[in-house]
Design a protein around this nucleic acid. Structure first.
Lengths: 161, 161
DNA sequence: TGTGAAATTCAATGGGT
DNA sequence: ACCCATTGAATTTCACA
């Protein structure tokens, strides 16, 4: 995986499309090369399916960390939340009830990057304390939430009429 | 959103494709109707983009819960993990270091379903204790992990050659 | 609102550089 | 890795149930 592959995958994420034409406009990579590259990335297992879901392990973001953030901020939690979302690698951020203020999930390249992440959190002035939990093994990280439901349950719960 | 819409969205998740032809094979919904339905779901904001990412709030799975699971099991964590993955609504499940054994994220329809979920956990014999945290507001739940990184960082960290 | 058939646009493929 | 020509699939349109 070289710079071009990374650029291509990043463009897919940003533009939220797999259209070769649009990816070409964004990246200046020729359309036929986009096909060529995407096929290779599929074969390598980086791109998992027709929906361009990415295998984070194969891509190189195989390290997952869950961080609980305890903070003392004035103003709305949304404004403070922006500071959390600015940290690179934060893929989920929840404002929660109970003991914790925020729960954050981050996907990273390695241990060095975990250190950087924790540092980024501690560097936010309103943050009192963080509690980081290292993920040893990801049993499931579903890109497709509906897979964890049976059709029957979904229909019962959500279908109108 | 009626039963047909739900069936269609579930088929997209299961087959991991947006191909009208394959969705037709799975659901028996005529191809032109699939287009018609998908357009409506796009307009309604249930389908967010070309990659068929789903807006869980719009779809009706707007309630998020984070559950820490403490368990006393014999054998491998993977075998035990299967029991966690069997619970409907579990979209992420991590086996972790530190105080917690497992951290689980679930997406649900409402408070009633939260009760069912907690019950499902408590019903697993090896589970000693659970600690559930209710999400008040989702600041980010990224379907596209790469969006939280700059291209520069990704290239620096992951590009070879 | 849903469906089928035809017309058009776009993506995928393969040979050649 | 790239371009071009061909094939094939997806999308749009519209007439009609």
């Amino acid at each position: 995986m070289d710079e071009r592959d990374v650029t291509l995958l990043k463009a897919i994420s940003d533009l939220e499309t797999g259209s070769p034409e649009k990816l070409h406009e964004e990246t200046d990579i020729p359309v036929s090369t986009i096909h060529y590259r995407l096929n290779n990335l599929r074969e390598a297992g980086v791109i998992e399916n027709d929906l361009y879901d990415i295998d984070l392990e194969e891509f190189g973001l195989g390290v997952t960390v869950v961080v609980e953030v305890f903070a003392d901020y004035t103003g709305s939690y949304r404004d403070f939340g922006e500071k959390i979302l600015d940290i690179e690698g934060v893929t989920q951020a929840y404002f929660t009830m109970g003991e914790t203020d925020f729960i954050v999930v981050a996907h990273l390249t390695g241990r060095e990057m975990v250190e950087r992440l924790i540092g980024d959190f501690e560097r936010i002035e309103e943050v009192d304390r963080t509690n980081s939990t290292f993920v040893i093994s990801t049993l499931r990280d579903s890109h497709r939430v509906l897979q964890s439901y049976s059709l029957d349950t979904l229909v019962d719960e959500l279908a109108e009429d």
